[in-house]
Design a protein around this nucleic acid. Structure first.
Lengths: 237, 237
DNA sequence: GTCTATACCACGATAGAC
DNA sequence: GTCTATCGTGGTATAGAC
């Protein structure tokens, strides 16, 4: 069989162990999820993928570029889905502003679908993504901010219309909190689960999780502006 | 001057370059903050601390145990402060249950004080901590869940009294979201700041940040239980 | 007890043979 | 496209100086 480099891959062709590039991506997604980026060696990665050590550098240029490829493969379609869903909701609503809950749905549903889709990495990928958010490596930070730029801008605009009482700056911070809680939750960090003694069984699935997260975030977004004295954050002893 | 190993260190003695152990801890805190745990080499760390390469293994046993020492040095006192502050609030309130805001204050104020205290690592440490939450390494996950166990248990109990309409399980999840947003925010991940185009100047300090975070979290905690249909999370496309 | 120099094997990356 | 050999650097262990 002649080796060739396909211009564009479809989900169908990714189904069972195919070309070198996809095998590397699949193995990388799994191992980065289990051990993180730095703690995953190219030697164990290429061994798991059944390819030569040098194949990563040949196909992706470096370990860092491989990581970006792992992220972009799932993240771009998911964010595009979010943008499209938001646009559809806005079309359906006509000139009326969307509710907070509706806008949140446009963020959460594509993430939920991805986490359920084993063919697209499922929870593996979201955990890699959640960890990437907190990574201090500049190449990751710059990459993520570029990947998210368009989606964030659109949702910010939608939230501004839904929450006219908030200033732009206030909304920016609240979106920061939303993204924090969201990525944290989707990443499913075990440390917190352990801390909180959560028993995660199969019934307690991602859909139920997001149904719990959504009201929490919606209430936070709609909250009245903070009063410093009420919270006694001024350190008086 | 005779070399000796003090049984217990005080903040005062940590003020200016002291013994090998403290110099290593200070350098580690700074470098782990800047580059993360895995990306920081013991060679650059010991060079920055002005000690020999083998000193880390002599004093701490391994790089992993050094990381735990970096965490425990700040985290234990902060969580003890949280527990004490909550107990004081409960004493002052008598038999009445505390408000959500008051309980959140007991969580946030010690964190805010730490972030402001340059002598205790300030923001450096909180950023290391935020990243540690998302780290998949088992030794970090187990360590953190053990360190937080007591604090979480006490606050959970307090919140249960303040929010009698929530089931224990529901509260567990909401605390998960709270910890997510909190650690994320305190960690101050630049990727999100970049994504959201936040201009962080000196006036936009941590106190202001927590004054914004607290109402958001309080509203989320007090939110009514979620309604799945309202959020249209059921994927009917 | 504390510190230093050094040796060890695994790592990411790359050049060059095939 | 793939493979092997090799380089500089990573964490770690230890022998011996003080």
């Amino acid at each position: 069989m002649r080796a060739q480099r396909p211009a564009r891959r479809t989900p169908a062709t990714d189904a069972l162990s195919q070309d070198t590039k996809s095998r590397i991506l699949d193995a990388a997604e799994l191992l980065f999820m289990e051990h993180g980026f730095e703690a995953t060696s190219l030697r164990q990665l290429t061994a798991a993928a059944g390819v030569n050590l040098a194949a990563v550098n040949y196909h992706f240029g470096s370990k860092e570029e491989l990581f970006q490829a792992v992220l972009t493969r799932r993240l771009d379609p998911m964010n595009q889905e979010r943008i499209d869903l938001l646009a559809r909701y806005e079309r359906e609503a006509g000139s009326k502003p969307l509710t907070c809950e509706k806008i949140l749905s446009a963020m959460l549903i594509p993430a939920l679908r991805l986490s359920r889709d084993e063919k697209r990495g499922g929870k593996h990928f979201l955990r890699v993504l959640g960890r990437a958010y907190a990574d201090p490596a500049p190449f990751i930070r710059n990459f993520l901010s570029a990947q998210y730029a368009e989606m964030i801008a659109r949702f910010k605009e939608a939230f501004l219309k839904a929450l006219p009482h908030l200033t732009k700056q206030e909304l920016t911070w609240r979106l920061h909190f939303v993204m924090g809680a969201l990525s944290y939750t989707l990443a499913g960090t075990d440390s917190l689960k352990l801390m909180l003694q959560v028993i995660t069984n199969d019934q307690d699935n991602d859909e139920l999780l997001l149904q719990r997260l959504a009201p929490f975030l919606a209430a936070g977004l709609k909250a009245p502006l903070g009063d410093a004295k009420k919270l006694e954050l001024v350190s008086g002893d």
